[in-house]
Protein backbone atom coordinates (compact mmCIF):
# COMPACT_ATOMS: atom_id res chain seq x y z
CA UNK A 1 0.00 0.00 0.00
CA UNK A 2 1.60 3.23 -1.11
CA UNK A 3 1.79 6.23 1.23
CA UNK A 4 1.66 4.11 4.32
CA UNK A 5 4.08 1.60 5.69
CA UNK A 6 3.69 -1.31 3.30
CA UNK A 7 3.80 -4.30 5.56
CA UNK A 8 4.33 -7.47 3.66
CA UNK A 9 3.35 -10.14 6.08
CA UNK A 10 3.86 -13.85 6.10
CA UNK A 11 1.10 -15.90 7.69
CA UNK A 12 2.58 -16.22 11.15
CA UNK A 13 3.50 -12.57 11.43
CA UNK A 14 2.84 -10.42 13.32
CA UNK A 15 1.68 -12.67 16.12
CA UNK A 16 4.95 -14.53 16.27
CA UNK A 17 7.19 -11.70 15.15
CA UNK A 18 8.95 -11.68 18.48
CA UNK A 19 9.84 -15.34 18.15
CA UNK A 20 10.54 -16.14 14.52
CA UNK A 21 12.33 -19.37 15.28
CA UNK A 22 11.13 -22.07 17.58
CA UNK A 23 14.07 -23.84 19.15
CA UNK A 24 13.99 -26.29 22.00
CA UNK A 25 17.32 -27.28 23.44
CA UNK A 26 19.40 -28.55 20.56
CA UNK A 27 16.95 -31.22 19.55
CA UNK A 28 14.80 -29.48 17.04
CA UNK A 29 14.15 -26.29 15.14
CA UNK A 30 11.13 -24.82 13.36
CA UNK A 31 11.45 -21.76 11.16
CA UNK A 32 9.25 -20.26 8.49
CA UNK A 33 10.57 -20.23 4.92
CA UNK A 34 9.34 -16.85 3.79
CA UNK A 35 8.08 -15.62 0.45
CA UNK A 36 8.70 -18.67 -1.66
CA UNK A 37 7.29 -18.46 -5.16
CA UNK A 38 4.85 -21.34 -5.56
CA UNK A 39 3.17 -22.33 -8.81
CA UNK A 40 0.59 -25.05 -9.22
CA UNK A 41 0.96 -26.76 -12.56
CA UNK A 42 -1.96 -28.83 -13.87
CA UNK A 43 -1.81 -30.81 -17.09
CA UNK A 44 -5.22 -31.40 -18.61
CA UNK A 45 -4.43 -34.04 -21.20
CA UNK A 46 -1.32 -35.96 -20.30
CA UNK A 47 0.67 -37.68 -23.05
CA UNK A 48 4.28 -38.35 -23.94
CA UNK A 49 4.54 -35.18 -26.01
CA UNK A 50 3.46 -32.96 -23.11
CA UNK A 51 5.77 -34.83 -20.78
CA UNK A 52 8.70 -34.31 -23.16
CA UNK A 53 7.90 -30.61 -23.51
CA UNK A 54 7.70 -30.15 -19.77
CA UNK A 55 11.01 -31.96 -19.31
CA UNK A 56 12.57 -29.77 -21.96
CA UNK A 57 11.54 -26.61 -20.12
CA UNK A 58 11.79 -27.68 -16.50
CA UNK A 59 14.21 -30.61 -16.54
CA UNK A 60 13.43 -34.16 -15.48
CA UNK A 61 10.10 -34.42 -13.73
CA UNK A 62 9.93 -36.16 -10.36
CA UNK A 63 8.54 -39.63 -9.86
CA UNK A 64 5.43 -40.07 -7.77
CA UNK A 65 5.87 -38.92 -4.14
CA UNK A 66 9.21 -37.27 -4.83
CA UNK A 67 10.79 -33.95 -5.74
CA UNK A 68 13.68 -32.87 -7.93
CA UNK A 69 15.73 -29.69 -8.12
CA UNK A 70 16.98 -28.04 -11.31
CA UNK A 71 18.43 -24.56 -11.82
CA UNK A 72 17.02 -23.13 -8.59
CA UNK A 73 13.59 -24.62 -9.19
CA UNK A 74 12.21 -27.35 -7.04
CA UNK A 75 9.51 -29.50 -8.62
CA UNK A 76 7.24 -31.66 -6.49
CA UNK A 77 4.93 -34.42 -7.66
CA UNK A 78 1.49 -33.70 -6.20
CA UNK A 79 -0.87 -36.13 -7.89
CA UNK A 80 -1.20 -37.65 -11.35
CA UNK A 81 -0.89 -34.82 -13.91
CA UNK A 82 -0.09 -32.21 -11.27
CA UNK A 83 3.16 -30.67 -10.00
CA UNK A 84 4.19 -27.88 -7.69
CA UNK A 85 7.02 -25.62 -8.81
CA UNK A 86 8.78 -23.78 -5.99
CA UNK A 87 11.14 -20.83 -6.34
CA UNK A 88 13.33 -19.46 -3.58
CA UNK A 89 12.51 -16.03 -2.13
CA UNK A 90 13.04 -13.41 -4.80
CA UNK A 91 12.48 -15.89 -7.63
CA UNK A 92 10.42 -14.59 -10.52
CA UNK A 93 7.19 -16.53 -10.86
CA UNK A 94 6.43 -14.79 -14.14
CA UNK A 95 9.58 -16.32 -15.72
CA UNK A 96 8.18 -19.81 -15.21
CA UNK A 97 4.75 -18.75 -16.43
CA UNK A 98 6.32 -17.29 -19.58
CA UNK A 99 8.48 -20.37 -20.05
CA UNK A 100 5.43 -22.62 -20.17
CA UNK A 101 3.11 -20.17 -21.87
CA UNK A 102 2.77 -22.19 -25.07
CA UNK A 103 2.05 -25.50 -23.39
CA UNK A 104 -1.46 -26.79 -22.71
CA UNK A 105 -0.82 -26.53 -19.02
CA UNK A 106 -2.70 -24.49 -16.46
CA UNK A 107 -0.59 -22.56 -14.00
CA UNK A 108 -1.90 -20.96 -10.83
CA UNK A 109 0.21 -18.74 -8.61
CA UNK A 110 -0.46 -19.88 -5.07
CA UNK A 111 2.53 -18.30 -3.30
CA UNK A 112 0.30 -16.34 -0.92
CA UNK A 113 -1.96 -19.23 -0.10
CA UNK A 114 0.75 -21.44 1.37
CA UNK A 115 3.04 -21.30 4.39
CA UNK A 116 6.17 -23.41 4.51
CA UNK A 117 8.10 -24.38 7.62
CA UNK A 118 11.56 -25.85 7.73
CA UNK A 119 11.88 -28.44 10.48
CA UNK A 120 15.24 -29.71 11.64
CA UNK A 121 16.16 -32.43 14.06
CA UNK A 122 15.95 -36.12 14.78
CA UNK A 123 12.85 -35.47 16.81
CA UNK A 124 10.93 -34.06 13.80
CA UNK A 125 9.55 -37.31 12.33
CA UNK A 126 8.56 -38.43 15.80
CA UNK A 127 6.52 -35.28 16.37
CA UNK A 128 4.90 -35.42 12.94
CA UNK A 129 4.12 -39.10 13.39
CA UNK A 130 1.93 -38.25 16.37
CA UNK A 131 -0.74 -37.14 13.95
CA UNK A 132 0.37 -38.39 10.57
CA UNK A 133 -0.40 -41.75 9.02
CA UNK A 134 2.61 -41.72 6.76
CA UNK A 135 5.49 -44.01 7.58
CA UNK A 136 8.16 -41.40 8.32
CA UNK A 137 10.83 -43.86 9.37
CA UNK A 138 14.12 -42.53 7.94
CA UNK A 139 14.63 -45.74 5.97
CA UNK A 140 11.22 -45.47 4.32
CA UNK A 141 10.64 -41.73 3.94
CA UNK A 142 14.05 -41.10 2.46
CA UNK A 143 15.68 -37.86 1.31
CA UNK A 144 13.87 -36.72 -1.84
CA UNK A 145 10.44 -37.90 -0.73
CA UNK A 146 7.58 -35.44 -1.08
CA UNK A 147 4.03 -36.34 -0.19
CA UNK A 148 0.74 -34.60 0.37
CA UNK A 149 -0.86 -36.23 3.38
CA UNK A 150 -2.73 -35.42 6.55
CA UNK A 151 -0.90 -34.03 9.57
CA UNK A 152 -2.65 -32.72 12.66
CA UNK A 153 -5.95 -32.70 10.81
CA UNK A 154 -4.58 -30.59 7.95
CA UNK A 155 -3.70 -31.28 4.35
CA UNK A 156 0.08 -30.92 4.44
CA UNK A 157 2.88 -31.48 1.96
CA UNK A 158 5.70 -33.24 3.83
CA UNK A 159 9.13 -33.17 2.24
CA UNK A 160 12.40 -34.71 3.37
CA UNK A 161 15.03 -32.28 2.15
CA UNK A 162 18.06 -33.61 3.93
CA UNK A 163 18.87 -36.29 6.46
CA UNK A 164 17.74 -34.14 9.38
CA UNK A 165 15.77 -31.46 7.52
CA UNK A 166 12.09 -31.69 6.63
CA UNK A 167 9.73 -29.14 5.16
CA UNK A 168 6.00 -28.93 5.63
CA UNK A 169 3.71 -26.73 3.56
CA UNK A 170 0.03 -26.01 4.18
CA UNK A 171 -2.72 -23.45 3.70
CA UNK A 172 -1.45 -20.15 5.08
CA UNK A 173 -4.45 -19.63 7.32
CA UNK A 174 -3.45 -22.71 9.34
CA UNK A 175 0.13 -21.49 9.92
CA UNK A 176 -0.39 -20.33 13.47
CA UNK A 177 -2.32 -23.46 14.40
CA UNK A 178 0.42 -25.71 13.04
CA UNK A 179 3.10 -23.71 14.82
CA UNK A 180 1.28 -24.13 18.14
CA UNK A 181 0.60 -27.80 17.46
CA UNK A 182 4.26 -28.44 16.69
CA UNK A 183 5.34 -26.46 19.73
CA UNK A 184 3.26 -28.75 21.89
CA UNK A 185 4.90 -31.69 20.17
CA UNK A 186 8.28 -30.33 21.21
CA UNK A 187 7.09 -29.96 24.76
CA UNK A 188 6.15 -33.65 24.89
CA UNK A 189 9.74 -34.56 24.11
CA UNK A 190 11.09 -32.01 26.59
CA UNK A 191 9.12 -33.68 29.33
CA UNK A 192 10.48 -37.05 28.42
Amino acid sequence: MRNVEKEILTPIQPRLRARPVLEVRAEGRLVERKFLGILRLQVIEWDNVIQAQLCEHLGTLPEASAFVEHHGLRIHWISPKEYLVILEEGGDEQCVIDLLADLPVLISVISDSRITFSLKGEVVPKILAQRCGLDLHPSVFVVGCSTVTRVAGLSVMVVRVDSLVYEVSMDRSYGQYFWEWFEQGFSCFEMS
Binding site: M1, K6, E7, I8, L9, T10, P14, F35, S113
Partner: peptide, 8 residues
Protein backbone atom coordinates in the same frame (compact mmCIF):
# COMPACT_ATOMS: atom_id res chain seq x y z
CA UNK B 1 -2.45 -11.19 -2.46
CA UNK B 2 -2.76 -12.31 1.15
CA UNK B 3 0.64 -10.96 2.18
CA UNK B 4 -0.81 -7.46 1.69
CA UNK B 5 -4.05 -8.28 3.53
CA UNK B 6 -3.32 -6.42 6.75
CA UNK B 7 -1.92 -3.43 4.85
CA UNK B 8 -5.05 -3.20 2.73
Amino acid sequence: PARYGLSL
